[in-house]
Design a protein around this nucleic acid. Structure first.
Length: 596
RNA sequence: GCCCCGGUAGCUCAGCUGGAUAGAGCAACUGCCUUCUAAGCAGUAGGUCAUGGGUUCGAAUCCCGUCCGGGGUACCA
């Protein structure tokens, strides 16, 4: 049983017997003892004063005496002001250690008997340009949250909704037809998503020039924007597409395939994947049908210009458009359709949308609309809302060319990792292929950790110039410590040091105990991360554990200790820490190299 | 205007279901490579937790006001 729970129950019993009072809920506060005081677990006694009607010190003293007499694992206690510090006996910690040591993936809950099915939507790209830094944060969070939910016993379906239709892709198509000169990924050697993205930029360039020309001729800005030949061409393509014109649909398919091939490479690089992919070209008509049904059932209403609306004033919100006056869908319509299809495909208990916080309002509305339409899961959808990634120059803007491309970013990181490793001469003994694999692990470790350690809901700043640190609270530091642990275990193995599963030492240091305490709390951390949908909880926890481990073992030789028991104890502790850290990093999608 | 989120060291971030002296890393400075690996370790310096009030034995943490920053706000996705 968890130490907090044992103490909690014991304190409750003590209060009952000493003061005949029922304390419950959060009146009993258990916390880890601060490093500077003696003890492992601390009870805050201030809340009990109203029961004891005695000064804090005296109350703490009485409870301490009672606990010492009744709870076996408590070795001693001390009182400082209103804080009762308990010292837990070594036996308890040794149990924790051997339990953790013998567990395969430490801290991972087995899947529940009847697991809840959670569907996690993330990534959700447009098909007119490559993935950028913002998508990277989205992808890493989505993947990690899925893994954390699994670790908490849920069944998870990872899904991606691809926004493959609309004016944006038509712009790229128009530019390709007009100025593409038959370029393809094959004959240009370019990644498909980058190629299509280039035509999107090309379109914008011409479009802007045309607007400038037209305004010079005396048109207003708005007139110019609506009369420029480029935009008319793109709109024409959209109309043709909706009318299922063969040639247009053919080009649309071809260019989207290029993009998908490019995305696949990026996803693979990032180590993320999906169980089921939805396309908006399939779902938007379903959404339209649902809205029309809602209209028939008088849930929605039609305005004079024949656009369809939902009135949410009763919910304290505004009115929301669902179909334009020409009958075409808006974003919301598509999301309704997508939701309907998903719930038809899977028995979903919990739907999680990993989407930026700029869309908080959208999801608030979506939940209400789905509820109104009679989907019972509607109001339970969870919008996992994360903050934006900002650059030193401010927000990323694709038009201003301040976007950090995902592929460039990863390759840049690999280059830094390679240069640094070669400079340090770290991986000289490895084959080129193995070394290259390790550079990639380190680069991705740095990038992923850098992004995931930040509280997801907060905006974060990313400075591509300074790139990312490999020192301090970083992925590589954790990977490095893991690699050292592997090294210790290899050496122990080579020198035939036998690691026994049973051991007994009379005492160990506060530092060792501190490491054990952290290890013992790890399953709770995974749970907390799941409840809060926050990989950052795990990241920062693992850093603290690794730092503590590193500080302690740096100055101690494990392999040349004269005393076999101590040696084995430390080996087992090392191995356990390695296991815990590896588990934590798995949940973040970070690979752990054996050497670096 | 209205709604939501944020403000902690020079910089990037932890800590926030109220608890003891607010923590890391980077940057600066000082030491440490014959032990598993210096991508490291030990140390110095750096704080009015935006600000004013309130709640209480106790507030970075909860409540209210103010200031600053970001986002959203009826036919972009």
């Amino acid at each position: 049983m968890n130490i907090d729970k044992i103490i909690y129950n014991a304190v409750g019993k003590a209060l009952k017997e000493l003061y005949q009072s029922e304390a419950g809920g959060n009146q009993i506060q258990i916390q880890n003892t601060r490093k500077d005081f003696e003890g492992d677990v601390t009870i805050v006694v201030f809340p009990f004063l109203r029961f004891s009607k005695k000064p804090p010190e005296e109350t703490a003293e009485e409870i301490g005496r009672h606990l010492l007499a009744h709870v076996k694992i408590i070795k001693s206690y001390n009182v400082i002001k209103g804080f009762l510090n308990l010292v837990i006996g070594n036996g308890y910690w040794l149990n924790i250690l051997s339990e953790a040591y013998s567990t395969e993936r430490y801290g991972i809950a087995p899947q529940e008997e009847k697991p809840e099915l959670a569907m996690v939507e993330y990534s959700s790209p447009n098909t007119n340009k490559p993935l950028h830094l913002g998508h990277v944060r989205n992808n890493l969070l989505g993947y990690s949250i899925s893994e954390i939910l699994k670790a908490n016993g849920k069944k998870v379906v990872k899904t991606n909704i691809v926004n493959d239709r609309g004016i944006h892709i038509c712009k790229s198509m128009y530019a390709w037809q007009k100025w593409g000169e038959g370029k393809t990924p094959e004959n240009s050697g370019m990644k498909g998503d980058h190629l299509v993205g280039e035509f999107y930029v090309e379109f914008d360039k011409h479009y802007k020039a045309e607007i400038a020309g037209l305004t010079e001729k005396g048109l207003t800005k708005e007139e110019a924007e609506n009369q420029a030949p480029s935009i008319l061409g793109a709109r024409e393509l959209l109309r043709k597409w909706e009318a299922k014109d063969e040639e247009t649909v053919g080009l649309w398919k071809t260019m989207n395939q290029w993009v998908y091939a490019g995305f696949d490479v990026t996803y693979k690089k990032l180590g993320v994947d999906f169980d089921k992919i939805y396309y908006e070209s399939d779902t938007y008509l379903v959404g339209k049908d649902e809205v029309l049904r809602g209209l028939e059932e008088k849930i929605f209403y039609k305005k004079d210009d024949s656009s369809v609306w939902a009135d949410l004033t009763k919910e304290g919100l505004d009115q929301k458009i669902l179909l334009r006056n020409d009958g075409t869908s808006v974003y919301m319509t598509q999301d309704i359709g997508t939701a309907k299809m998903r719930f038809a495909d899977y028995p979903i208990d919990k739907m999680v949308y990993v989407v930026g916080n700029e869309q908080n309002y959208h999801f608030q509305v979506l939940a209400i609309l789905l509820d109104k339409l009679g989907f019972e899961w509607g109001k339970d959808l969870y919008h996992f809302s994360y903050g934006m990634v900002e650059l030193p120059s401010g927000k990323m803007k694709s038009r201003e060319g301040t976007v950090v491309d995902a592929d460039d970013l990863v390759e840049g990181m690999v280059k830094v990792a390679r240069n640094m490793s070669i400079e340090l001469g770290k991986l000289d003994t490895l084959s080129e292929e193995e070394a290259e694999k390790t550079y990639r692990m380190i680069a991705l470790g740095a990038l992923k950790y850098f992004i995931l350690k930040v509280d997801p809901k907060k905006n974060m700043l990313f400075n591509p110039e300074e790139s990312i640190d490999f020192n301090g609270n970083t992925g590589p530091f954790i990977q490095y410590t893991f690699a050292r642990i592997q090294s210790v275990l290899r050496k122990a193995d080579d020198s035939n040091i036998k690691v026994k599963n049973t051991f007994d030492i009379s005492s160990f240091s506060d530092k060792e105990k501190g490491i054990l305490k952290r290890v013992s709390l790890f399953p709770g951390i995974i749970k907390e991360a799941g409840d809060n949908y926050s990989p950052a909880v795990i990241a920062n926890y693992c850093y603290e554990l690794v730092k503590e481990y590193n500080q302690f073992y740096h100055d101690h030789s494990i392999l040349s200790e004269p005393d076999g028991e101590i040696r084995n104890f430390r080996l087992i502790l090392s191995s356990t820490v390695g296991k815990v850290v590896k588990t934590g990093m798995d949940l973040l999608g970070i690979e752990m190299p054996d050497r670096m």
